[in-house]
Design a protein around this nucleic acid. Structure first.
Lengths: 198, 198
DNA sequence: ACGGTGATGACAGTTCCTGACATCACGGAG
DNA sequence: CTCCGTGATGTCAGGAACTGTCATCACCGT
């Protein structure tokens, strides 16, 4: 594998995912990853700031997706409508390649450090949504609450989705991520309504 | 400062907080912390698994507090009632020493790595609350939603509280953390109710 | 053919963190 | 009072994650 093979970043990401899955995150060394991709350790760190970051490649894309979805929501949509729509389309995007998502999730779930990083990414998505909401005139406190509530519901929906689907071709609505996001939001609303006043 | 001075752990935590605040997290070395506490680097790592963990000392106590509050909630309380009560008392605990909380928050906020760790701790608190809810018979999906929604509201309330209070003796209800938690929860409910059906 | 540009390699160095073993203070058994 | 076990600490060696610096290489336009 020569020095100037194309798509170095992609090769590194692939090699890392494979090695993490195979022998675990902690027992995989950056040198191993780099050599598996035909590169050197130093080059790995030119493409990824971190040993973990290599698994969180598309986060910027995800942020764009969410902010755009919120910006493009009709002016009549409430903040929670906009957030809900954005997260549903986000869920739909996940479903496009469930196999890859599963593979990646298995690796991330197996390591505390990786779950740590995933939470930061979710927090970044929250901030991005807050920004997009403020852009369309939502006041700051409302934007914060809407974004946090939305991400919270998404977490639950995603956990359900991952835990359920084995790899069957079953396409019941309950197994589709956008639908799970929607029901999580309504269930959350019901739970919050179910409180003793004052 | 001799080898057998008491409370090594506390001294390390104090020294770390002071140094992080003074010169930043990344530019502080573990050796510096250890020497400031009259100990060695190796001993630091016997007391804390991490350079970051030293700032998240009381997390187990916090988990106990939350799980106990949920367990002790009256049987008639809804899941969201129990979570809300637990988080309000949690907020009250924070308020006991606002100065220290502020100091610590300034340090944590200044470093990505530390915010990362804080998010993990919040996630651990979420899991603890889920466990406590399940203990009292709440079904798993409901428990997950209630805990996530509660933590989401708490995050927003906490951010408000930190951003507002300068150090004034002002004790308006809006500046008290338990009250902010409560209003965050009701505001979140309103936002979620404000959605197009579907 | 030639020089500029960007990606990569090579290497040294710092810091985080761990394992293994020695050492010290204390508290109880005799 | 002495001796010895126990737990906390010190010392040392070392792996692995990252960073800075400079040389080297492939490509691209002139």
């Amino acid at each position: 594998m020569g020095r100037w093979e194309p798509n170095a970043r992609g090769r590194l990401a692939e090699a890392a995912l494979a090695l993490y899955a195979e022998q675990g995150f902690e027992r995989t060394t950056v040198i191993e990853i780099a050599e598996a991709a035909g590169l050197t350790e130093r080059t790995f760190f030119r493409h990824f700031t971190d040993k973990r970051e290599v698994l969180f490649y598309g986060t910027e894309t995800a942020m764009d997706m969410l902010t755009r979805a919120i910006a493009e929501a009709p002016a009549s949509a409430s903040p929670m409508d906009a957030v809900g729509a954005a997260l549903e389309s986000f869920g739909a995007f996940f479903q496009e390649d469930p196999e890859r998502v599963r593979r990646r999730d298995a690796v991330v779930s197996s390591s505390t450090e990786l779950r740590e990083r995933e939470l930061v990414k979710l927090d970044a998505l929250t901030s991005a949504m807050v920004g997009a909401l403020r852009e369309r005139g939502t006041p700051a406190p409302t934007a914060g609450l809407a974004a946090e509530a939305g991400i919270a519901a998404f977490k639950v929906a995603y956990a359900h989705w991952i835990a359920a689907e084995p790899d069957t071709t079953d396409s019941a609505a309950e197994r589709k991520l956008p639908g799970l996001v929607r029901t999580a939001l309504t269930d959350m609303q019901k739970l919050l309504a179910d409180r003793a006043a004052g």
